[in-house]
Amino acid sequence: MTNLPAREQIIEAIRRAVSEALLIPQDQVIPSARLVSDLKAESIDVADIRFRIEDGLKIRIDQREMMVALGENLTAEELNNSFTVQFVIDYVTEKLTQGARG
């Protein structure tokens, strides 16, 4: 069993990852921000964000698995609306919690 980072540390790591990948100020990275629609992330940016989170929090994020967690059989619009900073925080927290348990 490993130590789970505090919720604030997870949020900070994710906000920093998004900010550094997209070259935007951290104050724009609010929980309700949609990565694609609001923050204009391209797929290469999403990969960049994922890698930064993986390195920062020492976890492995499988893109397919993350997309399934967003919801199956979504249209592009539904997917973009669901893919928020808050979703990433919740998803990563859940992954870390599972890792700490395992």
């Binding site: 990969a47 893109q63 397919r64 698995e65 997309m67 399934v68 199956e72 979504l74 249209t75 997917l79």
Partner: peptide, 11 residues
């Protein structure tokens, strides 16, 4: 695809 399939870049 009308619905977005979950995928990895290596697919």
């Amino acid at each position: 695809a009308p619905r977005i399939p979950a995928f990895n870049w290596c697919d």
